[in-house]
């Protein structure tokens, strides 16, 4: 018990717990065929929350260790410019329809999520955290912070959105008769960020590449669009 009292107060323990849990859940997810409903991030954070509650550890204590991982979100967001540049070079000639689809999709995602949540009397903190839900967590966490929402709630909602997107996309493609790989991939990237992109790779490499492009474009566009859209919808 003395051992526990000593190590549970050290940042090192929570850093190790986070990485180990993620490695195990990633391995499990691969074994289960990569289902988005048991995404390693969703499973990891559930397991860690249960562990913290069982051991009576506060989030603050946990974060003292986990902050070293959290910090890397900043440089990782900047690094998104690299794949964005790679894709950008290839699709330069088609930039206009892609931009248009990305912007319309991003506005639809944020506005419809806020309006539906508002219609069901969600609190202001929830509305501001749900606004960036279609954007990769790296960017959504930053957006929620800036808007006055809850970054951790936002990152959770982003993950659930990703899973929903992967479930809804295939039947919608059938109904709308969308058969092109590039369109399928791009749409998944706009609506379901990195999880959609990972899913798009199952349609093929081209779908995955367009998914990655869409994820970067939507993230950057949404970060600049939401500070304008949120006051327009009369909240914030």
């Amino acid at each position: 018990m003395e051992f526990w009292a000593f190590f549970s107060a050290k940042p090192l323990l929570w850093l190790i717990v986070t990485i180990v849990t993620f490695i195990v859940t990633s391995w499990l997810n691969r074994r289960l065929g990569g289902t988005p409903l048991l995404h390693p991030v969703l499973v990891s954070l559930s397991l860690i929350i249960v562990f913290l509650l069982l051991t009576g550890t506060s989030y603050e204590t946990y974060f003292e260790g986990a902050q070293f991982i959290h910090f890397l979100l900043g440089p990782a967001t900047v690094a998104l410019a690299v794949p964005l540049f790679d894709h950008f070079e290839r699709v330069k000639k088609m930039l206009l329809p892609l931009l248009l689809a990305c912007m319309a999709g991003a506005v639809t995602a944020a506005a419809s999520a806020i309006l539906v949540a508002q219609a069901f009397d969600a609190s202001l903190g929830t509305l501001l955290s749900i606004a960036p839900k279609s954007v990769t967590s790296a960017i959504a966490i930053g957006i929620a912070e800036k808007l006055g929402g809850y970054p951790s709630l936002a990152s959770g909602l982003v993950l659930i959105t990703g899973a929903i997107g992967c479930v809804l996309a295939p039947p919608i493609y059938r109904i709308l008769n969308v058969t092109d790989e590039a369109v399928k991939g791009f749409t998944l990237g706009v609506s379901a960020h990195g999880m959609g992109t990972a899913y798009a790779f199952e349609y093929g490499l081209m779908a995955g590449a367009f998914g990655g492009l869409a994820m970067g474009m939507t993230g950057a566009f949404t970060a600049f669009m939401l500070p304008v859209l949120v006051p327009l919808l009369g909240i914030g």
Binding site: T18, I19, T21, F22, S26, H39, P40, V41, L42, S44, L45, I48, I49, L52, L53, Y59, Y62, F63, A66, Q67, I69, H70, L72, L73, P75, A76, A79, L80, V82, P83, T136, S137, A138, I141, Y150, P151, S152, L153, S155, G156, V158, L159, G194
Partner: peptide, 19 residues
């Protein structure tokens, strides 16, 4: 960094326990 991007979301995600 991008290869392990998903791991970086975990610390913030655990913050759900405060909500």
């Amino acid at each position: 960094l991008l290869k392990h991007l998903a791991l970086l979301f975990v610390p913030a995600g655990v913050g759900l326990m405060t909500h």
